[in-house]
Amino acid sequence: MATMSAGPAKIDRQISLPMSQAMRIALRNITIRLGRALITGAGTMLGIAFLMSVFANTLAQQAANIEIPAQQATKNLWLVIMSLLVAVVGITNSMLMSVTERYKEIGTMKCLGALDNFIVKLFLLESGFLGFFGSLIGAIIGAVFVLLPKFGLWGSLDWGRFLLYLLGCVVIGSFLSIIAALGPAIRASRMPPADAMRTEV
C-alpha cells in the first residue's frame, strides 16, 4: 500500500457536460423514437392550434371591424385554458411513460458518469424540442385554418400582431412542454442507479 506516501487517490468532481452534447443526444432520442415523439408533439400541436385559431379569429374580426362581445371573449379564454391544460397533462403523461420506459437507460448513463442535472437536461431538452416544433406547426395550422377562407381580410389584417401571436404560441407551447416534463425528469434523475437497473420493463 502506497497510502503512507501518496495518500488516498485523488477524486475529482465530475464536469457538467456542455449543453451542445445534451442537445445532440436529446435530438437523437427524438429522431430515433419518432413515433412516440410525434404523439407527444401532437398533443401540444392540437392545444396550440386551438390557441392560435382563437387569436387569428380575434385578428380577423378586428380586421373586419366586428366588435367581439365580452361574453365570447371569456368563453374563448376558458376554452384556451382548458385546451392548454389538456396539452400539459398529455405531455406529462408521455414524458412519464418515456422516463419509465428508459429507467434502465438512465441508470446505465449514471453508471457511465452522467450527473443528475444531465439527465434532467436531457429530458427537458427532449420535451422542449417537441414543444417547440409541435407548437410551431400547431400555430401555423390554427392560423391557416382560420385565415385561409378569409383571404378577403388579408389586406386589412394586423400582420405585426399576427406574428406576435404566432411567436407567443410557440413560446407558450415550448414553455408548457418543459414545465410538464420537469416532474418526470427530476424523478428520473434522482433514482439511484441500482434501482434503475433492477426495474424490468
Binding site: D12, R13, Q14, G113, L115, D116
Partner: peptide, 14 residues
C-alpha cells in the same frame, strides 16, 4: 464521504 459530483467522477473514471 463523496458528494454526487465526486461519485459520478468515480463511476466515470475509476
Amino acid at each position: 464521504q463523496l458528494d454526487a459530483f465526486e461519485l459520478a467522477w468515480l463511476r466515470c473514471r475509476k
